[in-house]
Design a protein around this nucleic acid. Sequence first.
DNA 1: ATAATTATGATAATGATTATCATTATATAG
DNA 2: CTATATAATGATAATCATTATCATAATTAT
Lengths: 143, 143
Amino acid sequence: MVVDVINAKLHENSYRLTGQRKAVLNVMLENKGRHLSAEEVLWEARKILPNIGIATVYRTLEKLASLEVLYKSMFEGNKYRYELAENEKHHHHHVLCLACGQISEVSGDLLHELESKLDDQGYKIIDHELKFYGYCPTCTRKQ
Amino acid sequence: MVVDVINAKLHENSYRLTGQRKAVLNVMLENKGRHLSAEEVLWEARKILPNIGIATVYRTLEKLASLEVLYKSMFEGNKYRYELAENEKHHHHHVLCLACGQISEVSGDLLHELESKLDDQGYKIIDHELKFYGYCPTCTRKQ
DNA sequence: ATAATTATGATAATGATTATCATTATATAG
DNA sequence: CTATATAATGATAATCATTATCATAATTAT
Ligand SMILES: [Mn+2]
Ligand SMILES: [Mn+2]
Ligand SMILES: [Zn+2]
Ligand SMILES: [Zn+2]
């Protein structure tokens, strides 16, 4: 997602692009493809802005997620992770390695068939989330 | 899942079928198809065994989940829910209504194609989890 | 410049889950 | 059966991610 687009989205909602928000955004932009926890974002952001507080990081991540600049998902079950939303990758899914914890991505969307079946039943499906659990190629080889 | 099977599973692992575990099991058996939180299980179990503690409920739910007598999943994001595992329904998936919170079930498994694609890439996929978010038929009609 | 709005950081509160530990129940060995 | 080892329980403290509170600071509108 281009920075201008993000800027526009913030502006639309009359959010100010403060130094703290810039710092958080930079962290996410420099970590395309990674899935960071709030605390990880905090550590990175403090390299840019040493006094930024954890509450601000949470607030910023939530705002950016609500604007769909970021995606928010839960892998370990106790902690959310955030990643930069890239348009072409919308609706990608995840493979979580049970050995090393690595998160890899699966693109492609085979779920339209199921979704239209649900539509026929009267549901209105907005979104879906798919996670695979198993072993990544590296860990599979080591077994 | 039949009670005898559960009994056998417990026995195999030399777990004792105590009054507390019976109470939790009864709660789950009487709530087939529902997805209960630990606290909800506690309230129900206390109707049978008034002094059962929350720690024991957690311990029992975890044990039963590890034996695959129960399935454990997270819907709201902050709280796990447990449901009785029924063999024929293995790998069913969920639709979460964004309006009323109702959880309904989807059977069918269209994911083998994706899983075999991942296998080709060297992954060893053990399990998957699929959630749909949207509106249930009732809430869709009300809109 | 003044007043209103929005944002921030420190810190307390919350809520689900897990750990600890003394006590109790159950099983096993002699 | 009795002693002893093992497993289970309940009360409660600890943990940890997230949210709420609130006084202060920054930005915007008047
Ligand atoms: Mn991703
Ligand atoms: Mn279910
Ligand atoms: Zn791995
Ligand atoms: Zn509904």
